[in-house]
Simulated scan of single mutants.
Amino acid sequence: MGKFKIPAVPGTTSKTIRFPNRIIEEVEAAIQGTNCNFSQFVIEATRVALENLKEEDSQ
């Protein structure tokens, strides 16, 4: 059994960005009924996009 470690919460910074209304509606529809909020969705989408860019740069 692995040893329990208290997780470190990553630092965060508040940013204000504007989204087209259509994108907001699509994201809200996609997360409806899930345990995910708008910020979590955008953070994960951005993380995946950055990973994809890194993969493209390495090819």
Rank of each mutant, 00 (worst) to 15 (best):
Q40Y: 01
F41Q: 05
Q32G: 06
F19Q: 03
V9F: 05
N37A: 04
K15C: 04
A30S: 12
T16R: 13
P10E: 05
G2V: 11
G11I: 06
S39G: 08
V9T: 15
I43R: 15
P7K: 04
I31K: 02
K5F: 12
N35S: 12
F38C: 07
I31A: 03
V42R: 01
I24T: 09
A8S: 14
G33K: 00
E44W: 11
A8Q: 14
S14E: 14
A8D: 15
K3G: 04
T34R: 10
E28T: 05
P20E: 13
T16W: 06
K5S: 15
S14N: 13
N35V: 10
I6C: 05
A8P: 05
R22W: 13
E25H: 03
V9R: 08
K15M: 04
P10V: 02
I17L: 13
G33Y: 01
E26V: 02
I31H: 01
N37I: 07
K3E: 14
V42T: 07
I31L: 01
F38L: 13
V9K: 13
N21C: 04
N37R: 01
T34I: 07
S39V: 03
V9Y: 04
T12Q: 04
V27K: 03
V27H: 01
A30L: 09
E28A: 02
A30T: 06
F41G: 03
F38V: 14
G11V: 09
I24C: 07
T16K: 13
A8H: 13
E28Q: 12
P7M: 06
E44Y: 11
A45C: 13
K15E: 02
K15Q: 03
N35M: 07
M1W: 06
F19K: 06
R18Q: 12
K15D: 02
A8M: 14
K3S: 15
F38A: 08
I23D: 07
T13A: 06
S14F: 03
I6N: 10
P10Y: 00
Q40L: 05
M1C: 07
V9S: 11
V42N: 00
I43L: 12
I31Q: 01
T34K: 11
R22H: 11
V27W: 02
E25I: 08
I23F: 15
S39F: 06
G33W: 02
G33S: 03
R22D: 15
V9Q: 11
S39P: 03
I17T: 08
I24D: 05
E44I: 12
T12L: 00
G33E: 03
Q40F: 02
R22C: 08
P20A: 11
R18H: 10
I43W: 04
N21V: 10
I6M: 11
I43F: 02
E44P: 05
E26G: 02
E44A: 15
I24E: 08
F4Q: 10
G2Q: 08
A30M: 09
P10N: 04
